[in-house]
Design a protein around this nucleic acid. Structure first.
Lengths: 183, 183
DNA sequence: CTCGGATGAGACAGGCGCGTCTCATTCGGG
DNA sequence: CCCGAATGAGACGCGCCTGTCTCATCCGAG
């Protein structure tokens, strides 16, 4: 069975996140299937993007659940969240940059729910005294998405080693680039 | 004179960074000019993207010059660089996500030169003892681009106040999200 | 082996955006 | 005021992509 729906979507995301104007034929080739088969499973380009959004939301809902955001400190939960996000980082990279989904209502609801969970996590960290209060939860949420996407690209381009994915993101996000003496 | 070449390009970047499949007509409308006029100045879509790349490289070369990257500490230079980058942040956001320019030879040379300058800045910071050595200059460079682009989007969406642009980026990049006692 | 479902390759028409053109209008300089 | 350059609007053909179809092939189940 050459047709693994989720894997096709992942391949599509990997390609589209780099070349958003890619042809349906290019997407099919990238996924290792024929264009006809691609059309059999996704009615059209819109349906494909919708499926990508749906998969992305579903995967990250699951990632959030696996990360057990409510357990331990917010900082610990954040580390688990980044670890859980690695698998679908390319998908996130595509979705973050594909902000033309401002028409979808159902989709935005899903993103709003995810944003709320991340935002709440940062807010909890601020309440616990571990996260700076001069950086808004909304910005930290966006920055987390951005860093994950950026690192996914950097890994794809070979500028960052795949094994360093989690470390580079979490260390930069939490600790920053400046060297401090006590760390 | 309704035709300000650089302003048209900036408007195009602002639109295309959000909707990369936007029509030439949409780009023209976004820039407040007619489609015919857009075609008079940029032979086609490819030429438009090329012009965007060229403008981006030119502007950031200038931004780097204005930031005087060699003066003072690397950290100080970095603050100036972020400040100088604010004006063309949307342009950078577009160019960073538009990685389909892997064919261009001249363009890549320009980016390589910019990358080298930023990378060298971080390396200098590491040598001075102010920047962590466990985060590679290549990653810090990518992260800087990513954060600038992410913040530009967040400002466009109203999730971050425009006046906080520099602060949010530089504080997160340098200090990180974790609250530390001595800062 | 036989059969049915799934796939790949290719053909086909239709649509949409692209690139070019024309023409009327506007704007600014002389 | 006059003139020429620049612009906006629209028309037009073209090319590429899309979406659908057909048909041959493959593969697994029975």
């Amino acid at each position: 069975m050459a047709m693994d729906r989720d894997q096709v979507l992942r391949d599509a995301a990997a390609l589209l996140s780099r070349k958003s104007t890619a042809t349906m034929d290019e997407v099919a080739r990238a996924a290792g299937i024929g264009r006809a088969t691609l059309h059999r499973h996704f009615a059209g380009r819109d349906a494909l993007v919708r499926a990508l959004e749906e998969l992305g939301i579903r995967q990250f809902e699951a990632a959030f659940d696996n990360a057990r955001l409510d357990e331990g400190t917010a900082v610990e939960a954040l580390r688990r969240l980044v670890a859980e996000s690695e698998r679908d980082a390319q998908l996130l990279a595509f979705l973050v940059t594909e902000n033309q989904l401002f028409e979808g209502d159902q989709i935005n609801e899903g993103w709003a729910r995810l944003d709320a969970r991340v935002s709440a996590l940062f807010r909890r960290g601020q309440a616990e005294g571990d996260i700076r209060i001069d950086l808004s939860p909304a910005w930290l949420t966006e920055a987390l998405y951005g860093l994950i996407g950026t690192c996914a690209w950097a890994v794809m381009d070979g500028r960052v080693a795949a094994k360093d994915f989690q470390y580079m993101i979490i260390e930069l996000l939490l600790g920053g680039a400046r060297r401090s003496v006590e760390k």
